[in-house]
Simulated assay, not measured.
Amino acid sequence: MNSTAMKNVAAIAPHQDAHNLAIAQLWRDRWENRVNALSNCIEHLVVDHDMTEANAELVAVQAYAELESTNQLASIDVDATTSSVVVLRTEGGRPVVFTALDLMRVLEQARNDGRAVVVDRDRRRPVVLEH
């Protein structure tokens, strides 16, 4: 392909936003555990796409959660969720309420069980729960 044709192809190629980049990387690592998949994704976004670590973490975590929730009946009700309560809608739209204290107790139990794992040990963040 000549250089003019390559420029035309590049011009019509769709722009990949950060979320799509994260989804693609996570899909490549779909057989990895959460920690490895997120670590690889964050590194990919930082190194290959010049994102800040904090932004890469957020994009990677959101993309991971989206992939994980595919075909799930339950979802988080973002309209009902606030800074102190997460509302989970189960089958039929039934609300399940998790206060910040409830979630801290879940995290503490996961820590006690050895299931709360730090993705980046040097930075001590983010923390994910392994199943």
Score class of each variant (00 low, 15 high):
Val106His: 06
Gln109Met: 08
Thr99Lys: 02
Ala24Gln: 06
Ser75Ala: 10
Arg89Val: 06
Leu21Gln: 00
Thr4Tyr: 15
Arg115Gln: 08
Gly114Met: 03
Ala56Asp: 00
Thr70Gln: 15
Gln16Leu: 15
Ala110Thr: 02
Asn112Trp: 08
Val61Trp: 00
His49Ala: 01
Asp48Met: 11
Arg121Pro: 06
Arg89Ile: 03
Lys7Ala: 15
Gly114Gln: 06
Ala22Lys: 00
Ser3Phe: 12
His49Lys: 01
Met104Gly: 05
Ala13Gln: 09
Glu53Trp: 07
Pro14Ile: 06
Leu101Asp: 14
Asp48Ile: 03
Asn71Ile: 11
Val47Leu: 05
Val78Asp: 12
Asp17Pro: 02
Val118Cys: 15
Asp122Leu: 15
Val127Phe: 09
Asp48Ser: 08
Glu66His: 08
Ala63Pro: 00
Ile12Glu: 14
Glu108Ser: 14
Ser39Leu: 04
Gln25Gly: 00
Met6Pro: 03
Gln25Phe: 01
Thr52Asn: 05
Leu73Pro: 04
Val46Trp: 01
Pro14His: 09
Val47Asn: 12
Val9Phe: 10
Ala22Ser: 03
Glu57Lys: 01
Leu58Arg: 05
Ser83Cys: 07
Val97Trp: 11
Trp27His: 10
His131Ser: 14
Ala22Pro: 00
Val47Arg: 10
Gln72Asp: 10
Glu91Asp: 09
Thr90His: 08
Val9Ala: 13
Arg30Phe: 14
Gln16Thr: 13
Ala65Val: 08
Asn112Gly: 13
Ala10Arg: 14
Ser84Asn: 05
Asp17Thr: 05
Arg121Tyr: 12
Val118Gly: 05
Ala37Arg: 00
Asn20Phe: 09
Lys7His: 15
Ala37Cys: 05
Ala18Arg: 01
Val87Asn: 01
Val85Phe: 09
Ala80Cys: 08
Asp29Pro: 02
Gly93Glu: 02
Met51Trp: 01
Asp120Thr: 05
Asn55Lys: 09
Asn2Pro: 06
Asp122Met: 13
Val118Ser: 13
Ala18Asp: 03
Pro14Arg: 10
Arg89Pro: 02
Asp102Gly: 07
Ile12Cys: 11
Pro95Ala: 05
Leu103Ile: 14
Asn20Ser: 13
Val61His: 01
Glu66Ser: 10
Glu108His: 07
Val117Met: 09
Gln109Asp: 12
Leu38Ser: 01
Leu103Asp: 04
Val128Tyr: 01
Ala116Arg: 03
Val117Lys: 06
Arg30Ala: 10
Val9Gly: 05
Thr52Tyr: 04
Asn71Gly: 05
Tyr64Thr: 05
Asn40Cys: 04
Val118Thr: 13
Glu108Gln: 14
Thr52Met: 11
Ser83Gln: 12
Thr4Trp: 11
Ala65Cys: 13
Val85Tyr: 02
Trp27Arg: 09
Asp113Ala: 11
Ala22Cys: 03
Glu108Tyr: 12
Glu91Gln: 10
Val118Ala: 09
Ser75Cys: 10
